[in-house]
Design a protein around this nucleic acid. Structure first.
Lengths: 331, 331
DNA sequence: TTGTACGCGTTATCAC
DNA sequence: GTGATAACGCGTACAA
């Protein structure tokens, strides 16, 4: 409520002096400093972040934007927590938006962030050619990509080794004796999905197993498609004995389908999912999954962003995190 | 990037005219309007939300704050989605913060929101006497409470009938023949927790059942406490045959404990949880729960906030939503 | 060491 | 109809 002006009046100094007391440790004689600080306290002064941001073009907004597809997806929620915690530690606030994988929403929010003069933006690009993001980068706002990367722009990036995760998962199933392994993958336009499929195929090949077209189904990363595709797979005359499901939501869908069919896990059908399920322990049986270090992804992305804000010209770096195969009882 | 100034120069008019074209209020002759609009387009002009906000004190920031305990809790994530969708529909952006039920974080973020001049704030108060929130309200920023209410301040409020939800849940268990029903409640400081307990006690009483102290345990709304308390309850010499667990996370913990003990649900122990579990279908058995309309809570809260922003003096209203007993197979 | 004055990008109130 | 111009609250060169 109180402005610099009012504080200055009360302390009987100029606004410049008050401002100096606040920001620069410029030379202000201890006496006046004390008086000003008293006035500051009396009035409960709080600087307006809005005015401050208008005045200073660069990186002092202490505000960053995060755009994710869906906060209700635990994977993104975990990333968001990582970002948020790192932001809070640096006293940054977060403008959080859900894009729903909808380019219009993404564009709208990207616009808002430009217009809000945020210090930087963290997001998983819609796809490798995301034009709205590319445009935003051109304006000079620091952007850090997470999870997925951009083809034509070099930005800081925090990603997970999807190929390796999938490879481990499928190798694990093979080691358990499975020879007929179904794949439920996500939207094939996104690079992470393709990498996971590559991991699946390579693991198969390395063990002399030939991939079967009818065992490979592509969904949309959502629960319902997991349910439907698992049903298709399990309804085959010669169904697979194991399923590798390429994200959390689809795994849940697949599990639901399996339960509905009354199949025993892992005896009648084994399951390995990509992404950990936050409530894995409550599931029966607790599922084996490839756990992505999502919290870390968010945290490191924020730290990268902070570095770039401080030093805009530093060369972009890519951080590649390793997933972890968490073996529980569904495989 | 381009400012009013630059647009004005390009169109060879004054900034006032450009501003008028943008805000469509005053009369601008079609000719000049056309010229200005062309310049606007050429330069890809976008108004600075920051400058705009600095100039206009009231409700035009198109920015609202949402403070929740933890975005990783599906209940709050669902509220957040409700808020976000309603905000997006009205072209508002969202400043989202996690308080972790930590008063310091809450205070910090409340401060940020003041300093950002947000148009309004939505939050579940920490407790009924939340001082930081009370102070914020005094500054005149519109505040809408969700889930929990404030004792000393009249604000708009969207809440759920916790008493009724708990009452239905326990009555349901009794109807199923249970006479020994354990209660795992949350932090007793929060009003919602107390209401749920009241519902439990009343339902018991109405059926002539005496509450047993040793069947009633208080946790902290987190998964681990659900696990521990369920273990305690089930380890009793004469354990309860059914559990009523007062929130989602604790239900998950309780389920984990039950699975670990190898108990069959619902034959050996029945369970009803408060809050729906997003992946209920994947659980085996799918749990019976009292579903809170969390999405609606968020949506209506945002709509209430919008109304208050438009009409700051309107009397505060309370919206009370009904929970729904979703009977699945754990009871 | 401190004060004056300008500019950041808007909107709104005046004159013209 | 349109154009100067004064705020909004802040940081900072420059003058004192």
């Amino acid at each position: 409520m109180a402005s610099l002006q009012e504080v200055a009046r009360r302390a009987k100094v100029s606004i410049a002096t008050v401002s100096r007391v606040l920001n620069r440790s410029d030379k202000v004689v201890p006496e006046t400093r004390a008086i000003v600080e008293q006035a500051l306290r009396d009035l409960g002064y709080r600087p307006s972040r809005v005015a401050r941001r208008l005045r200073m073009k660069d990186g002092r907004a202490h505000l960053v934007g995060l755009i994710i597809p869906d906060i209700q997806n635990p994977f993104y929620a975990e990333i968001a927590r990582g970002v948020e915690d790192a932001a809070y530690a640096a006293e940054y606030a977060l403008l959080l938006c859900n894009s729903d994988e909808n380019p219009d929403k993404e564009s709208f929010y990207l616009g808002v962030m430009r217009d809000e003069s945020v210090d930087g933006i963290i997001l998983p690009p819609f796809d490798e050619a995301d034009a709205a993001v590319a445009d935003t980068i051109k304006t000079g706002i620091p952007v850090v990509c997470v999870d997925r990367s951009l083809a034509r722009a070099r930005t800081d990036l925090v990603e997970v080794d999807n190929y390796r995760g999938a490879h481990e998962a499928v190798s694990h199933l093979i080691a358990r004796g499975h020879r007929h392994i179904g794949l439920i993958e996500g939207r094939t336009q996104v690079s992470t999905s393709r990498e996971r499929r590559r991991g699946y195929l390579d693991a198969l090949a390395e063990h002399g197993l030939a991939p079967k077209k009818e065992f490979m189904r592509a969904g949309d990363f959502k629960q319902e498609s997991g349910r439907i595709l698992a049903n298709e797979l399990l309804g085959l005359r010669k169904p697979p004995t194991a399923l590798f499901v390429c994200n959390n939501l689809m795994t849940v869908g697949a599990l639901a389908a399996i339960h509905q069919r009354g199949l025993r896990v892992p005896q009648e059908v084994a399951v390995v999912g990509f992404d950990d399920l936050p409530w894995a322990e409550a599931l029966d049986p607790p599922p084996t999954v490839v756990r992505q270090p999502a919290y870390n992804v968010g945290q490191q992305a924020m730290e990268l962003l902070l570095k770039r804000i401080m030093e805009p010209t530093r060369p972009p770096v890519t951080v590649r995190l390793l997933p972890e195969l968490v073996i529980r009882r569904s495989s």
